[in-house]
């Protein structure tokens, strides 16, 4: 177990290239947790400031959609990667929730321990910055793609969704061998699927007009007409109308 943690830390983005003494110091401080699929290791809005390193398994980073049970997936994170670094730095509430996709083993490092170690080994801070910059670049790619697709939707073009669906099945974990842009597309596709659902609903509403017209009860219609046409008044009216029309035609000719 200790060896495993050692290897993991040595290979991680934040701690690789740090001398063994720092790694050993970290190993003393981190706490190991086992998390079941579906459980959250971080809850959006919560006020805590630990950072987590995934030892094994995968998590999804999600933002819940307002007023609904749905969620928007921002990222998938796997072994050797960190989550929760924002609150570690700025101590503000958690910006997103992190939920286990599979059984998970994570290492927790508190802000207090992190700062203590960083005081002795400032290089660790630089590594953290590099990782955070990478995440930032991913977010920018994500935004850029979101804007591009929004424009397409405004023009009624949903073809990019089909292309994206063809590129990979939904629900599977998006690993890091893919480029930032390919990964952003995968996550955004799920979100923009919603826009396509809206379009479908709109089309269905238009279709309802057709259904409305078709719903004329011909039996009822015939019965009502029969009642009117069968009355004495109608017979008299029809006769009078014919006379009026004849007179009009005569006066036209005259």
């Amino acid at each position: 177990m200790t060896q495993e943690i050692y290897t993991l830390l040595k290979q991680s983005e934040w701690f690789s290239n740090l001398p063994d003494e720092v790694i050993h110091l970290l190993m003393e401080r981190v706490k190991t947790h086992t998390v079941q699929p579906g459980e959250a290791i971080i809850q959006r809005g919560q006020q805590d400031d630990s950072v987590f390193m995934i030892q094994s398994g995968w998590v999804k980073v999600v933002i819940p959609e307002e007023g609904e049970e749905g969620e928007m997936v921002l990222n998938h994170v796997g072994p050797g990667e960190m989550v929760g670094e924002l609150s570690l730095v700025d101590q503000r509430p958690r910006s997103a929730s992190v939920i286990a996709l599979s059984e998970l083993s994570v290492l927790e490092l508190t802000r207090r321990d992190f700062l203590e170690i960083m005081e002795q080994y400032p290089m660790m801070g630089l590594h953290m910055l590099i990782t955070t910059s990478k995440r930032m670049r991913f977010v920018l790619t994500y935004l850029e793609q979101a804007v591009t697709w929004s424009h397409k939707i405004a023009e009624g073009d949903y073809s990019f969704l089909e292309e994206e669906q063809a590129a990979g099945g939904p629900g599977s974990v998006v690993d890091h061998s893919a480029s930032d842009s390919a990964r952003a597309n995968r996550f955004l596709a799920a979100f923009f699927q919603m826009a396509q659902d809206v379009q479908k609903r709109e089309a269905e509403l238009k279709e309802q007009v057709k259904k409305l017209i078709i719903q004329i009860d011909s039996g009822k219609r015939d019965h009502e007409i029969e009642q009117i046409v069968g009355s004495d008044f109608f017979a008299k009216l029809k006769l009078e109308t014919l006379q009026i029309r004849e007179e009009r035609d005569k006066s036209k000719k005259a």
Partner: peptide, 18 residues
């Protein structure tokens, strides 16, 4: 729908009244 039904009857009556 309610207008469609009533209008259908009225259209037929108007046609009968030429």
């Amino acid at each position: 729908n309610q207008d469609f039904q009533g209008t259908a009857v009225t259209v037929d009556i108007a046609k009968l009244l030429l």
